[in-house]
Design a protein around this nucleic acid. Structure first.
Lengths: 190, 190
DNA sequence: GCATGTGAAAATCTTCACAGCA
DNA sequence: TGCTGTGAAGATTTTCACATGC
């Protein structure tokens, strides 16, 4: 579903409707895969016409729990963290990086993209501020303690950029992006 | 295999041997999955003992074509690109970011982590320098033209950080990391 | 006894093919 | 006619269970 959503968002300013066949071509997958996947969530399209892209986006956003705007916190405002703060791509999925934290006094108080960098000791306030998503972009040695602090602050989902395996209670969902590992997949194909 | 490699690299400074059971626990997967996967590439372990971690790492690196050191080029030295240049995690997989390119005259000539930033017009030299992997970290509007230039320069594998779908000849392998899309997967679970 | 490697079984995922609707 | 939604078939992946080797 996230992949379909991304494809549809990219297509939405070009077309009004799309068939499963055309979306499949765009995403380089099989068309009945798409129809089958959508069918698990009920009917989305019109026979003979296809899918209304804007409606479909709304529907998928609802399924993915993206129809309400979400606030996310960023922990670690080094190079990677700064890149994330400056990245404009979150908005179209219904996200806002609403808070940023670091432990470096030189960074605290600065502002990037209208977000003021706070001291990491203020993490517990996330609960009160109703921020339940976080992005970890700290050095690897600090990843686990950051995760612990986030969980304590009531965070329910974490996007983790450290290559370390972080341990959290299983009610908390972690998605890890290990850039080096992704790069390491390439030589196999060449 | 990349996931196994990462786990083993993390474990290698703690243990000498590991059983499929223990590795499975560490990675939160099923143990026969691991044995089955390894069996496709021949026998790796010793019954009654398990797997020699260092040997296993060597073996998997060979399978993934990581046993020779690879050079990679980075295109786009903004925030994200700088983070990638500064990231120390590539080395353990056998990688080196050996070149960096940008089109901003203010950045060209600077050095980050012993890599001098070159003008993007020098991309064609990648072929001569035997660099066949590249990382695209440019603004989204420049992603496709960057990919085109890389393909022309003989690059065979691309790690793409732009959310746009880039089109390349099918002999070129592209792995896309869309940070916003990954974050968008979290709210479903919470 | 302990853990691998592997056929066989079970579960899941993908594709086919077509009835039915716009 | 064109395309959806979906049972059924086919393909693949995952798990089981155990004979074999250290």
């Amino acid at each position: 579903m996230p992949v379909y959503l991304r494809g549809l968002l990219l297509l939405s300013d070009q077309e009004q409707n799309i068939s499963s066949r055309n979306l499949a071509d765009f995403l380089s997958i099989n068309d009945s895969q798409i129809r089958k996947d959508f069918s698990y969530f009920g009917a989305f399209g019109t026979p003979g016409v296809g899918y209304d892209i804007r409606k479909l986006i709304k529907r998928i956003k609802k399924i993915l729990n993206l129809s309400v705007f979400h606030k996310a916190a960023l922990v670690g405002v080094g190079n990677l963290g700064s890149a994330i703060l400056a990245y404009p791509g979150f908005r179209m999925y219904g996200f806002d990086i609403a808070a940023a934290f670091d432990n470096d006094p030189k960074r605290i108080g600065r502002e990037i993209n209208n977000v003021r960098i706070e001291d990491i000791s203020s993490l517990p306030a996330l609960r009160r501020r109703k921020i339940s998503l976080a992005i970890i972009a700290v050095p690897r040695d600090a990843a686990q303690q950051t995760a612990d602090a986030l969980v304590k602050a009531g965070v329910k989902g974490i996007l983790n950029f450290s290559p370390l395996r972080i341990t959290v209670p299983k009610k908390v969902k972690v998605i890890t992006i290990d850039i080096a590992m992704e790069l390491a997949r390439l030589p196999y194909y060449i």
